[in-house]
Computed example of a mutant assay.
Amino acid sequence: MISPEELLAIALGAVPGALTRYYVAVWSDRRFGTLLFGTLSVNLMGAFLMGLLNPLLHRWGVSLWLTEGVTVGFLGSLTTFSTFTLEVSNLRRQGDPRLAWFYWLGTPLLGFLCVEAGIGLSHLFEMGLAADAGQ
């Protein structure tokens, strides 16, 4: 069960993580004319920081609530990519390379298919609403 301290730390970490993501995207859009570099930057930065901080915080004996605030809160709202890459790494190190490969390759592929399915469904909703409005 998660403690109230952990929940508060996650919530307090999430705000600066989300704001960092937003401002990197805004800066990227202004600088390069696209959000892609901002997304790439936060994903790579988040993955690096997750790989660096998660083991160090545990090794240093940092309290669970603070560790959760940094990793789940800040880095999790900065990018879920950092969590995803840590999970793939954990699966590989725990001796489950097949599942690691499936997860690593399946997540973006299935994620793309889900986005496309959602877009297709939204078009159906729009067509239905337009048909209803025409009656």
Rank of each mutant, 00 (worst) to 15 (best):
V24W: 11
L12M: 15
T39Q: 10
L113V: 14
S41A: 14
F48I: 07
T39A: 08
S63P: 08
T85F: 15
W65I: 02
G69V: 00
L86H: 12
A14G: 14
L7F: 15
G118K: 06
W27F: 14
T83D: 14
L40Q: 04
R21I: 01
F32Q: 04
L49G: 09
L113W: 15
A25E: 13
W27Y: 13
A11K: 02
G118P: 09
A47R: 05
G17S: 08
N43C: 12
A25Q: 12
G51W: 09
I119N: 12
W101G: 04
N54R: 10
V70R: 06
A117M: 11
R31N: 08
G76N: 04
I10V: 13
L57S: 05
V15Y: 00
A47G: 08
A100L: 11
A18Y: 04
G51P: 06
A25D: 14
G95R: 12
P16F: 08
T85W: 13
G76M: 05
F112Q: 03
E116V: 12
V88L: 05
L35T: 11
G51M: 01
G17R: 05
A14Y: 07
S63I: 01
A18I: 10
L40R: 03
T71D: 02
F81Y: 12
L78K: 08
G73Y: 06
L109F: 15
R98S: 05
V115G: 00
L99Y: 14
E68N: 13
R93Y: 15
L53V: 00
G13L: 05
E68R: 13
G17M: 01
A11E: 09
Y23S: 00
S41Y: 09
L99V: 10
L64M: 06
F84Y: 15
R31K: 13
L109G: 03
A100I: 03
A47K: 01
S89F: 12
N43D: 08
I10D: 05
W65D: 05
L75H: 07
T67F: 06
L8E: 00
T80N: 11
L40T: 08
L99A: 11
L36A: 08
T80C: 09
P97M: 03
L8M: 10
S77E: 13
V62N: 05
C114W: 14
G106F: 06
N43P: 12
V72P: 01
S63A: 11
V15C: 01
L99F: 15
